[in-house]
Amino acid sequence: MLHTVNKSPFASATLSACIEHITPGAALLLIEDGVTGAVAGTPAADLLAAILGRCPVYVLQPDLAARGLREARLLPGVELVDYAGFVRLVVAHEAVQAWL
Protein backbone atom coordinates (compact mmCIF):
# COMPACT_ATOMS: atom_id res chain seq x y z
CA MET A 1 0.00 0.00 0.00
CA LEU A 2 1.21 3.51 -0.88
CA HIS A 3 -0.27 6.11 1.47
CA THR A 4 -0.36 9.73 0.38
CA VAL A 5 -0.98 12.69 2.70
CA ASN A 6 -1.76 16.12 1.28
CA LYS A 7 -2.57 18.11 4.44
CA SER A 8 -0.21 20.12 6.61
CA PRO A 9 0.22 18.45 10.03
CA PHE A 10 -0.04 21.93 11.55
CA ALA A 11 -3.62 22.30 10.27
CA SER A 12 -5.00 18.76 10.36
CA ALA A 13 -4.61 15.40 12.11
CA THR A 14 -4.46 13.58 8.77
CA LEU A 15 -0.75 12.69 8.96
CA SER A 16 -1.01 11.19 12.44
CA ALA A 17 -4.18 9.26 11.44
CA CYS A 18 -2.30 7.86 8.46
CA ILE A 19 0.77 6.91 10.50
CA GLU A 20 -1.42 5.07 13.00
CA HIS A 21 -2.77 2.88 10.18
CA ILE A 22 0.44 2.14 8.31
CA THR A 23 1.47 -1.52 8.12
CA PRO A 24 4.95 -2.91 7.41
CA GLY A 25 5.66 -3.03 3.67
CA ALA A 26 3.70 0.13 3.04
CA ALA A 27 5.22 3.44 2.00
CA LEU A 28 4.26 7.04 2.75
CA LEU A 29 4.43 9.89 0.24
CA LEU A 30 3.90 13.48 1.35
CA ILE A 31 2.42 15.76 -1.31
CA GLU A 32 0.97 19.29 -1.55
CA ASP A 33 0.79 20.91 1.94
CA GLY A 34 1.66 17.50 3.37
CA VAL A 35 5.34 18.09 2.55
CA THR A 36 5.62 20.45 5.54
CA GLY A 37 5.38 17.37 7.77
CA ALA A 38 8.89 16.28 6.77
CA VAL A 39 10.69 19.40 8.05
CA ALA A 40 13.13 18.33 10.79
CA GLY A 41 12.56 19.51 14.34
CA THR A 42 8.77 19.51 14.15
CA PRO A 43 6.34 17.21 16.03
CA ALA A 44 5.33 15.69 12.69
CA ALA A 45 8.93 14.83 11.87
CA ASP A 46 9.16 12.99 15.20
CA LEU A 47 6.17 10.85 14.13
CA LEU A 48 7.85 10.17 10.79
CA ALA A 49 11.16 9.31 12.46
CA ALA A 50 9.35 6.63 14.45
CA ILE A 51 8.14 4.78 11.33
CA LEU A 52 11.17 5.32 9.06
CA GLY A 53 12.66 2.00 10.16
CA ARG A 54 9.72 -0.03 8.81
CA CYS A 55 8.20 2.21 6.10
CA PRO A 56 10.02 4.42 3.60
CA VAL A 57 8.88 8.05 3.60
CA TYR A 58 8.97 10.09 0.39
CA VAL A 59 8.38 13.78 -0.29
CA LEU A 60 7.26 15.15 -3.64
CA GLN A 61 10.04 17.56 -4.58
CA PRO A 62 8.05 20.01 -6.76
CA ASP A 63 5.63 20.60 -3.86
CA LEU A 64 8.57 21.15 -1.52
CA ALA A 65 10.26 23.60 -3.91
CA ALA A 66 7.00 25.47 -4.49
CA ARG A 67 6.84 26.20 -0.77
CA GLY A 68 10.41 27.49 -0.53
CA LEU A 69 11.56 24.45 1.42
CA ARG A 70 14.83 22.69 0.63
CA GLU A 71 16.07 19.17 1.17
CA ALA A 72 18.53 20.42 3.82
CA ARG A 73 15.59 21.22 6.10
CA LEU A 74 14.14 17.71 5.94
CA LEU A 75 14.27 14.90 8.43
CA PRO A 76 17.27 12.68 7.55
CA GLY A 77 16.15 9.43 5.92
CA VAL A 78 13.25 10.99 4.04
CA GLU A 79 13.63 10.56 0.25
CA LEU A 80 12.74 13.09 -2.42
CA VAL A 81 10.85 12.01 -5.54
CA ASP A 82 9.84 13.88 -8.69
CA TYR A 83 6.62 13.26 -10.63
CA ALA A 84 8.13 10.26 -12.44
CA GLY A 85 9.12 8.88 -9.04
CA PHE A 86 5.54 9.39 -7.83
CA VAL A 87 4.32 7.30 -10.77
CA ARG A 88 6.93 4.58 -10.04
CA LEU A 89 5.74 4.42 -6.42
CA VAL A 90 2.11 4.04 -7.54
CA VAL A 91 3.09 1.23 -9.92
CA ALA A 92 5.23 -0.50 -7.28
CA HIS A 93 2.38 -0.77 -4.76
CA GLU A 94 -0.80 -2.81 -5.13
CA ALA A 95 -3.06 0.00 -4.00
CA VAL A 96 -2.97 3.66 -3.08
CA GLN A 97 -4.71 5.18 -0.09
CA ALA A 98 -5.04 8.95 -0.35
CA TRP A 99 -5.47 10.51 3.09
CA LEU A 100 -7.42 13.73 2.61
Partner: peptide
Amino acid sequence: DRGQMAAIMAAQDVVLSF
Protein backbone atom coordinates in the same frame (compact mmCIF):
# COMPACT_ATOMS: atom_id res chain seq x y z
CA ASP B 1 -9.06 -1.01 17.17
CA ARG B 2 -6.29 0.72 15.20
CA GLY B 3 -4.42 -2.50 14.47
CA GLN B 4 -7.51 -4.23 13.10
CA MET B 5 -8.40 -1.18 11.01
CA ALA B 6 -4.87 -1.07 9.59
CA ALA B 7 -5.16 -4.75 8.62
CA ILE B 8 -8.55 -4.15 6.97
CA MET B 9 -7.06 -1.29 4.94
CA ALA B 10 -4.04 -3.35 3.93
CA ALA B 11 -6.29 -6.17 2.64
CA GLN B 12 -8.08 -4.07 -0.01
CA ASP B 13 -7.70 -3.94 -3.78
CA VAL B 14 -8.95 -0.36 -3.93
CA VAL B 15 -9.12 2.27 -1.17
CA LEU B 16 -11.14 5.41 -1.78
CA SER B 17 -10.88 8.22 0.75
CA PHE B 18 -13.46 10.86 1.51
